[in-house]
């Protein structure tokens, strides 16, 4: 029983990471109807930036904040420079361009920081709280950071006028433009936010999976599975889906298929969702007129 609970709790901890990456994906999807396949590699790159800052002598939380800020700026610049030209292009070109970004970030990280696996520090103590065997401080801390981030994002979109403008721009670009919202910049801000969320997720998961240029590949697939399971156009769905996939992955890894086939769990979850309930648990059915 204790072992099962342990699996569930550490599943929730990684689920929080999947939830945040899935949230970033859903934000971009809602704004542009495109999936950002480079989301994982952008997060990986940001984590490398954080690593070099920490190596350079910055205290952890300072490096953390600087990285989140840089990731935000990087996301905005990327949208303005690379994504803008394919904003209205068919899905195919947008997918290929984001694959191009994925490849470039991956190789730049390998080029500058080398392909060797490195350890990444955790800001939380290296022991278990309350003498329990269920959770480590890092798992607890990363869950806390993830939840704090989700609350912050929710409040931003719910209570600030900028958040309202961004939601409006995503929902109805034409009308938003008519009332004076600069839709292009709202999309860029969305990309910046998504990049910042990814950076946080990367820094939280790096102590567990270790830092190397391919570290986010698996996590991105779980995030896809989470976003699809929850409903690709629903932010709450992405979060719920993230936690479900995290627990599912851990339980399946421990009791069903073993760690070797963990990625296959994501594949099965994706195809299963597409076959049984393509709109996901909380997603809206989109009906388009022909």
């Amino acid at each position: 029983m204790d072992a099962l609970l342990h699996q569930v709790f550490s599943g929730l901890a990684t689920g929080g990471i999947y939830a945040s990456v899935a949230l970033a994906l859903v934000m971009i999807y809602n704004a542009t109807n495109h999936i950002n396949f480079a989301q994982g590699e952008m997060a990986m790159f940001a984590t490398y930036v954080a690593w070099s800052l920490i190596e350079g002598g910055l205290p952890y939380w300072a490096a953390f904040s600087v990285t989140v800020g840089l990731a935000f700026l990087g996301g905005v610049v990327l949208e303005r420079v690379v994504i803008r030209p394919v904003e209205n292009a068919p899905g195919l070109s947008a997918v290929i361009v984001s694959i191009g970004i994925l490849v470039i970030f991956n190789s730049l990280a390998g080029w500058w920081f080398s392909y060797t696996t490195r350890s990444f520090p955790s800001p939380f103590p290296d022991s278990r709280p309350f003498g329990s065997s269920l959770l480590s401080y890092h798992e607890l801390g990363s869950m806390g950071v993830t939840l704090a981030m989700l609350v912050a994002i929710y409040s931003f979109f719910r209570f600030t006028s900028l958040g309202l403008a961004m939601r409006a721009a995503a929902q109805n670009p034409v009308s938003s433009r008519l009332v004076g919202i600069r839709v292009g910049w709202m999309l860029a801000l969305g990309w910046g936010l998504a990049a910042a969320i990814g950076a946080v997720a990367g820094m939280m998961v790096a102590p567990i999976v270790f830092l190397d240029p391919n570290m986010m590949g698996g996590i991105l697939v779980y995030a896809f599975a989470a976003a699809l399971l929850g409903g690709i156009n629903n932010p709450w769905g992405a979060v719920v889906g993230g936690f479900i996939i995290g627990v599912l992955e851990n339980l399946a890894g421990a009791y069903v298929v073993g760690t070797e086939l963990k990625l296959t769990v994501a594949l099965v979850a994706i195809i299963g969702t597409l076959v049984v309930k393509p709109d996901g648990l909380l997603g809206k059915t989109v009906v388009s007129r022909v």
Partner: peptide, 19 residues
Amino acid sequence: LGTIHLALATFALALATPQ
């Protein structure tokens, strides 16, 4: 389903293949 769902499913397939 649309292009995006197919892209997602095949992306997962590509990652899971070596495993």
